[in-house]
Nucleic acid binder design. Structure first.
Ligand SMILES: [Mn+2]
Ligand SMILES: [Mn+2]
Ligand SMILES: [Mn+2]
Ligand SMILES: [Mn+2]
Lengths: 223, 223
DNA sequence: ATTAGAATTTTGAGTAGTCAAAATCACCGC
DNA sequence: GCGGTGATTTTGACTACTCAAAATTCTAAT
């Protein structure tokens, strides 16, 4: 039985939630899952029990949920479609990187195997989407690249923005306006715990100071 | 309340069914509707009563159903999305004209206003889809072009194939193989009631004979 | 050890869409 | 006018998904 849009969204949310998790357990609490899906807690519990029935997740009552091998593969394929579609909308249809997420959220559930492979081909088998998120392979494998955030990278050292871990449209437009899109080169000038801020130097020597919460969402690589 | 995929499919099926109808009533029988949606007769009845509640159709028990103004506009917009998507898949993604229908059937329900307008623009505001079906306007207006079929057009006269009224993949591949796609020029050599057949002369003087049922699905225009 | 508070699960109910089969209706031929 | 036939509607039931609110369980602080 092929998974419904709802099931695909649950699997994807668990996948994403788990990837944020530290610790070997990788158990995502139901509350977090419900929150990320915008659903009542009881709803998530019910659904997760059904997913466990069909072998897509392991469920530990009162502790949380974890994807099985099959579930993980399925989730990665949804993510693959989502990210290929986002890139396609930007690259081929000229949409902005801050407006493609919602369309991709729907399209990821209906594009056929054939269609997504055509898209992949037209794009030349890309490795990352417009936000720098890695595109899982046809087989459901994701290459997890270790990246610093602006909170952990070395100071006074040129780094390249590689990835943005927040899809909020206003945030993305802010980044674009200040040349902080993936691919851009910047330097962290200073971090200050007290003022909760990080100061950056951009390409043409513009300076900008952002909050630490925002800084944590920009992932970079030392060049 | 925005219409579900199911509602959109019902409206589209009624729209298409009605367009086949002769007579001023334009009342589509429930049996026909149920058949075209692949649904049990009782299911169609229930759904149509709900559609009537929300003012999208007029329902005459035991007689049939007819779209209201609002329903008709909505149906035309679904059709607009369907046909733009089909053309896009062929033109931009290089898919074959016999394999785009199923994808379009799903995509028509999830593409956003913004996305479909981008697609329309990239395609240069086309008037017909790969099968020659007219693309309704943004406002939900369809230009009904009067066309002959191969059963009614004059004999021994060059005509241009304009439209194919059957999405069956095998049939479409057959047409392609024999240069009978929209745009091609042909002539009807003969019709024979007894053998239920129509004989055609193609571009490079190839001849081919097809059944009347098939011939009725090819719409042409005298040049 | 108790216990308050938070997280989670359970319960009861509701919506959207579907089917099979029984009941009903419309119409045509006689 | 009377039946019979086929189309249509009604009925009762089921699946998938959801919520609000009550009940339960876990945990961490006293
Ligand atoms: Mn989604
Ligand atoms: Mn993305
Ligand atoms: Mn459809
Ligand atoms: Mn078409």
């Amino acid at each position: 039985m092929l998974p419904s849009s709802t099931v695909e969204n649950y699997l994807k949310a668990i996948f994403l939630g788990q990837s944020q998790l530290t610790g070997a357990q990788r158990l995502l609490p139901m509350g977090q899952l419900a929150l990320s899906l915008g659903v009542a807690p009881g709803t998530a519990t019910t659904m997760v029990k059904a997913l466990a029935e069909s072998g897509l997740v392991e469920y530990e009552p009162y502790n949380g949920v974890r994807l099985s091998g099959a579930g993980s593969r399925l989730a990665a394929l949804v993510l693959r479609r989502h990210r290929l579609i986002e890139l396609f909308l930007v690259q081929v249809l000229g949409m902005r990187w801050d407006e493609v997420h919602d369309d991709a959220e729907q399209l990821e559930h209906v594009v056929s195997e054939r269609l997504i492979e055509r898209i992949d081909e037209v794009l030349g088998h890309p490795e990352v989407d417009p936000h720098g998120d890695p595109i899982p392979s046809r087989e459901g494998e994701v290459v997890w690249r270790a990246l610093d955030s602006l909170l952990t990278c070395p100071l006074h050292t040129p780094v390249t923005v590689m990835r943005v871990t927040d899809q909020d449209a206003a945030f993305l437009r802010f980044l674009e306006k200040h040349d902080l899109k993936p691919g851009q080169s910047i330097e962290v000038e200073a971090r200050d715990e007290v003022s909760d801020s990080v100061s950056l130097k951009g390409k043409t020597d513009q300076r900008i100071t952002i909050g630490m919460r925002a800084a944590s969402k920009l992932l970079v690589e030392v060049r």
